[in-house]
């Protein structure tokens, strides 16, 4: 069972660490499946209705959940306010595109994403100081408070945000001057998926780096992390600001693909839903938020089809059962199942 403790194996030790960062076959499968949805639901096959707008929304939700995963699943910061950055990003992109009248440069979708990322990154940086210290409860309430203030601001600044009605007619210019957003949402889905992949790839590099390891260490034991020289606060500020920027990109995506921005995008339930999606899918795997977003929206559609009003009940029940009985969400379940399978397979 145990390996011989010899220096000969040092090369192998490094390789084992590196191997953790390598792409697995099931990851490739996941992304191929995401692309194939484009062909299945893109109104190419007669008889299958187009679902690409819904899928684009799922992508945006998944990206929001991914940003929470970086903060919560890896760095251990409990937040109920990630929706604030999502909404902020949506409004930044929305206001920009509207002001640009559908013409480059202001209405350019990619520039809109960058602007949303920059504004939210700065907002995240500024508010990160509020979550550095204090217990989980303080963090929850500070993030919630910041989110509520931002939502109220969006509601009040009618001249900029359109108040309770939101911004309508947010028209973006064609992506890279080439691809226009179409009625079926084909461009929207591929565009969203591409943005998601870029953000995911970046996050994946980060969590598998030394920086990512130091986040896990801080989550595990901040006292010990400090004692071995980890600059705990600097690391937390960095990841919080980065996650805020990613949440902003997610919001900007939704604003661009739905061509609107509304107070609904910055409301409390957005933060709660995204947190739930992440926990449901499994925090600390990166894929949890993505899988959670798919299941969440599919469940919402299926249950909502016959009891739209009482969807909340089932959502609540799922949450309660999840907390009481399941560790690590859907991915945690799959992992446990996989481990049991392979262990029995290995046994002589």
């Amino acid at each position: 069972m145990s390996m011989a403790p010899h220096s000969k194996l040092d090369g192998e030790a490094g390789a084992r660490l590196l191997a953790k960062a390598q792409w697995r076959w099931y990851e490739v499968l996941f992304w191929l499946a995401a692309i194939s949805l484009y062909f299945v639901f893109g109104d190419f096959i007669p008889g299958i209705p187009t679902k690409l707008m819904l899928l684009s929304e799922i992508v945006s939700l998944g990206l929001l959940a991914l940003s929470i995963d970086l903060v919560l699943g890896y760095a251990g910061i409990v937040t109920l306010g990630q929706g604030a950055f999502f909404g902020l990003g949506a409004y930044v992109a929305g206001v920009m595109a509207k002001a640009g009248m559908g013409v480059f440069p202001l209405s350019d979708p990619l520039l809109g994403l960058l602007a949303a990322a920059a504004v939210c990154g700065i907002a995240g940086f500024l508010t990160s100081f509020l979550v550095l210290r204090g217990s989980d409860l303080t963090r929850l309430m500070v993030t919630l408070g910041v989110a509520l203030i931002l939502a109220e601001l969006a509601n009040q600044m009618r001249w900029l945000t359109g108040g309770a009605d939101g911004l309508q007619g947010v028209t973006s210019s064609p992506i890279l001057g080439q691809w226009d957003f179409d009625l079926w949402g084909r461009t929207a889905y591929l565009y969203s998926l591409a943005v998601l992949f870029v953000c995911f790839w970046l996050s994946r590099r980060i969590v598998h780096s030394t920086f990512g390891l130091s986040l896990k260490a801080i989550k595990g034991n901040a006292l010990r992390a400090r004692a071995i020289g980890v600059p705990v606060n600097a690391r937390l500020i960095a990841i919080y600001a980065l996650a805020a920027a990613i949440a902003g990109v997610a919001g900007a995506l939704l604003a661009q693909t739905t061509q609107s921005a509304s107070p609904d995008m910055i409301a409390f339930h957005r933060s709660a839903d995204a947190l739930l999606i992440l926990v449901f899918g499994g925090a600390g795997y990166l894929y949890g938020g993505l899988i959670g977003a798919v299941l969440f929206r599919v469940m919402q559609d299926v249950i909502g089809a016959f009891t739209l009003q009482y969807w909340q009940f089932w959502l609540g029940l799922v949450l309660v059962l999840l907390v009481l009985f399941v560790r690590g969400g859907v991915i945690g379940l799959l992992e446990g199942w996989w481990n049991r399978m392979t262990r029995t397979g290995d046994a002589p």
Binding site: D136, F313, G316, V323
Partner: peptide, 21 residues
């Protein structure tokens, strides 16, 4: 604390839907 928050938010959702019903 995260579990406690999620759990009690779940209860809130259920209570809201039950009363609504």
């Amino acid at each position: 604390h995260l579990d406690q928050v999620l759990f009690s938010i779940g209860l809130v959702f259920m209570a809201t839907a039950i009363v609504d019903y």
